[in-house]
């Protein structure tokens, strides 16, 4: 129906709501023989991706709270020992390398499944799981050493913030490794394909996120 008809129907334009402007009426099917309702196209961000993005948002607020507390203590103290004094910074540099490289292998795996290359996909996934496990192993070893040397969570603010921040990140890596392990098992059974890669994709989003958090935490806690 042309715009004029609504006005012809005796309705002053001002009386038509902003929610039902004459233009809108024209677009409405059945009202004036217009086209069928424009079905909303596939949402730009799928449910699963969006859910993961929101989880990441929430996690960011969680780490922001912890980091905020760390910053308060770190910069509120007149003296704060450098990370080099207590922490095995050298090994952790290497470990950081492992974690960042695992993000790269994860990305490679995603590339492969998008290209429907099952064999390299599974291989890259396996390497990612391996790297993640190495990261956790090194961290665990580091912690044992630190506790042995007397840096426990209750030994002053330094230990408390260290174990809380790095521990929370470690738990996230652990969760991510376990999840990725499940994805790896599914991948070996051929559950994923070019079209059906969402399960890997959201897992990879989380993996990148965990790596990104480390990129923030490592300089903050170890290098200062």
């Amino acid at each position: 129906m042309p715009r004029g008809s609504a006005l012809a129907a005796g309705l002053p334009a001002s009386q038509l709501s902003t929610h039902e402007t004459p233009e809108a009426l024209v677009a409405v099917p059945g009202y004036g023989g217009g086209p069928p309702p424009p079905s909303i196209p596939q949402p730009p961000v799928s449910n699963a991706r969006m859910g993961m993005l929101m989880l990441i948002g929430a996690e960011t607020m969680f780490f922001a709270g912890l980091i905020g507390a760390y910053v308060v203590f770190r910069f509120g103290s007149p003296v704060w020992p450098s990370g080099h004094l207590y922490l095995p910074v050298g090994i952790t540099w290497v470990n950081t390398g492992f974690l960042l490289f695992s993000c790269y292998t994860m990305w490679k795996a995603m590339r492969c499944i998008k290209a429907d290359q099952q064999q390299p996909f599974v291989r890259w996934l396996a390497i990612t799981v391996l790297l993640g496990s190495i990261f956790l192993g090194v961290q665990g070893f580091e912690w044992v050493q630190l506790v042995h040397d007397g840096l426990t969570i209750s030994a002053g603010m330094y230990g408390a913030t260290f174990y809380t921040l790095i521990g929370c990140h470690g738990l996230h890596v652990l969760a991510a490794v376990l999840w990725l392990g499940i994805v790896l098992l599914q991948a070996r059974r051929g559950k994923f394909s070019q079209q059906r890669a969402i399960g890997v994709e959201i897992c990879s989003m989380y993996w990148y996120y965990v790596g990104a958090v480390w990129v923030v935490l490592f300089p903050l806690v170890y290098l200062n």
Binding site: V79, A155, M157, G159
Partner: peptide, 19 residues
């Protein structure tokens, strides 16, 4: 007690105490 415990943490602890 906490002070005693944390005394072992030398520099880190004294920093915290001063804060």
């Amino acid at each position: 007690e906490e002070e005693a415990e944390s005394a072992m943490e030398g520099a880190a602890d004294s920093a915290a105490q001063e804060a």
